[in-house]
């Protein structure tokens, strides 16, 4: 299981999709989960919106949108066998949000749903003790923005602290232990090579490490501007080219100004990436900035290949 975490707007969904495609191409059955209402996966793959039952994105790749209402029902009725509680409390659209917030229940249930997927077997059996091959080899969780994403991972412990006893407590403990299992669960932190996102990533990684309840698999730096003049011979010419271009004026001068800006952008990006590497010492991969008008499945597949350098 991979939880893909990051600040809003850094491209968590794109990274999730790329990871999923990569796994699928290698013949692993993968599924991407996202929060209800987002429906980003369907849009990225140009498909009909997926619902609470898994929908197909590509060969070996499915997506599922976690709807709190449906997840709560499933959790209480199927996992905990408390249909009465569900009928009384959670079918009430006004009571449910309150209980969810006060108890942190909706976060727990979102994580719980992911665990359910982990517990599903090819033969249809289900549960922590079920035998046989898993229905999904890789579960990718396109998580909410950093703060909320972190509270998602914290939710089992939070529930245990509140309840201390009973079925809810026991289930939360199961989930917590599965999250803490390095063999099974990892976090991927997604960021941009910019000041604020990098600082937030360092902060999030530090917090995760201090709490020690989940393993960080690595960092993906998204949208990195490509190197400019990275071979020494061209670099040597650059100064002459620059001077001549500015002298020529017109389109030549414009192209020189654009190249100058690219160089500066690249240098800044490199500084931020160096800071990430030095501070955290985690495996890190860079995804190039895509210039396509909008991401399509083909662009995603390309990104997936870059991510492949990782495993």
């Amino acid at each position: 299981m991979l939880f893909v975490l990051g600040k809003g707007g850094v491209g968590k969904s794109v990274v999730s999709a790329s990871l999923g495609l990569l796994a699928a191409e290698r013949g692993r059955r993968a599924i991407i989960t996202e929060a209800a209402g987002a429906e980003t996966m369907a849009a990225l793959f140009d498909r009909e919106p997926v619902g609470y039952t898994p929908g197909r994105l590509a060969t070996n790749l499915q997506a599922l949108s976690i709807q709190p209402g449906a997840a709560v029902e499933e959790y209480l009725v199927r996992t905990l066998k408390f249909r009465l509680v569900y009928e009384m409390v959670f079918r009430n659209r006004f009571v449910e949000p309150f209980m969810s917030a006060v108890m942190g229940l909706s976060d727990l249930i979102t994580v719980g749903k992911v665990m359910d997927l982990e517990w599903e077997r090819v033969d249809g059996s289900f549960g922590p003790d079920a035998e046989g091959p898993n229905k999904y080899d890789l579960i990718i969780v396109d998580s909410p923005a950093t703060g909320h994403g972190l509270s998602l991972l914290r939710s089992p412990q939070a529930m245990m602290d509140v309840t201390r006893v009973g079925p809810l407590f026991n289930n939360a403990r199961l989930i917590r232990d599965l999250l803490a299992d390095e063999q099974k669960t990892g976090v991927v932190l997604v960021t941009l090579a910019e000041d604020m996102p990098v600082s937030e990533t360092i902060q999030a990684a530090t917090e995760l490490r201090e709490r020690g309840n989940v393993h960080i698999s690595g960092i993906v730096v998204n949208g990195v501007v490509p190197p400019v003049f990275d071979d020494p011979a061209t670099a040597e010419c650059w100064d002459r080219v620059r001077r001549q271009g500015l002298e020529l004026g017109g389109a030549a001068a414009e192209s020189v100004r654009d190249a100058e800006r690219s160089l500066r952008d690249r240098n800044r990006a490199e500084e931020h990436i160096a800071r990430l590497r030095e501070t955290l010492g985690l495996p890190l991969i860079e995804l190039p900035l895509l210039s396509k008008r909008d991401l399509d499945a083909k662009a995603l597949a390309e990104l997936g290949t870059v991510l492949g350098a990782w495993s």
Partner: peptide, 29 residues
């Protein structure tokens, strides 16, 4: 770049550098 006001110098690395500059220009445009 050779369709703009850049002209080839005949020096291979120099012309390659101009082409890279042009690629950046095209990307940004």
């Amino acid at each position: 770049p050779w369709e703009s006001n850049w002209t080839r110098s005949g020096e291979a690395t120099y012309d390659a550098a101009v082409e890279q500059v042009w690629d950046e220009h095209r990307r940004r445009t």
